[in-house]
Write a protein that binds this DNA or RNA. Structure first.
Lengths: 189, 189
DNA sequence: TAACAAAACTAACGTTTGTTAGTTACATAT
DNA sequence: ATATGTAACTAACAAACGTTAGTTTTGTTA
């Protein structure tokens, strides 16, 4: 068992505690206890509590960034791209539902360059999505609604998916994608 | 200036600090400093940090509960009721955008009966909304999508509205309601 | 002016926090 | 058998936390 693996274990355990109580309400002693060791032993594998948070969040932020880049490069219509973004979000959520809580709720506890890098990535992400939506409206694929309302109604739904995906009996991923795309794009009436 | 007013002032100041950093990252000294007094002085008006949180959250939770009851009693079609729920959320968000952060992110730090009361109110709220949606599907007003997907895509959007409502140049409330209802009900394509 | 209540203050308390230092247990390689 | 490196341990630190006790300031009422 090498150090890298042990570190990943710590990050994984911390993720699920952060999801329950938030970054600041989880102590190093809590994390250690959950792993069956003492708090001081954690420092053989990580440099501090901050590193756990930044490892966690920046790993996911990079996934979203590269996922968005893949969508942009895909060459489809704006409507195709929106579908791809939705599906990407669902894929990441299904595979990392524990860690997503920290990304959504605890990013402001990042420090220095980690914080500014995250904020920049998040702004870029939203900007890219906004451009796709605006292009869709210009080309007549989308109804002429306020782009900001479209952007945040889709993004809000996708970003909080991690909260209810698992507690509702683990819907099949493909069914979820299909229904989600339908509801978000075509509405409900 | 009576005690009740001073307490409300504390709760208001705390709300906006909680929104920025979360309940556990805000100290009594932070709150006091923001008010220009010392931490110990806060205890002339409140019994403790917990009381700030529970005052804040339960006040809002009751607003949502009574708002939902008004919708149920309104006697409209399921579709009418969904529109009313959306408009109610927007009204509460516009009037209490600071305090909504704690309701969404810090409710788990409530204690004892406050916690159980809140959880019950939240479950009841979702149940009531779910019933409206299911009835809408049965009566043919809504497309036959998975009710859970409809419920949470609408609710997620409404619950995170406080995050972006003000930073996007304060859209007019009535325009926001109109666009939001349109996007959530009729989709974007 | 004296009395009173409200709301601020200073000082300190016991805990909990993240973290460091130094030490021990144990498996693997020489 | 010895040496080495990994990963656990105990003990302790300074700082920050929520909170309490007792005191002073301030403004209003009799």
């Amino acid at each position: 068992m090498n150090t890298a693996t042990r570190k990943e274990e710590i990050v994984a355990v911390a993720s699920s505690l952060f999801k329950e109580k938030g970054y600041n309400a989880v102590s190093m002693r809590d994390i250690a206890q959950e792993m069956g060791i003492k708090a001081a032993s954690l420092y053989n594998h990580i440099s501090g509590k901050q590193e756990i948070l930044s490892t966690l969040i920046l790993y996911l932020a990079r996934k979203f960034t590269s996922g968005m880049q893949a969508v942009i490069d895909s060459g489809g219509t704006p409507l195709d791209k929106i579908k791809e973004v939705i599906e990407m979000h669902i894929d990441i959520t299904v595979n990392h539902s524990e860690a997503l809580a920290a990304l959504n709720n605890d990013w402001m506890h990042l420090e220095n360059e980690d914080l500014s890098n995250f904020v920049r990535m998040r702004e870029d992400y939203e900007d890219n999505f906004r451009k796709i939506i605006k292009q869709g409206i210009e080309e007549g694929d989308l109804k002429p609604r306020h782009p900001e309302v479209i952007l945040f109604s889709i993004l809000s739904t996708l970003r909080t998916l991690y909260l209810w995906y698992q507690k509702r009996g683990k819907l099949d991923v493909n069914v979820l994608k299909k229904d989600m795309v339908a509801v978000l794009l075509e509405g409900i009436v």
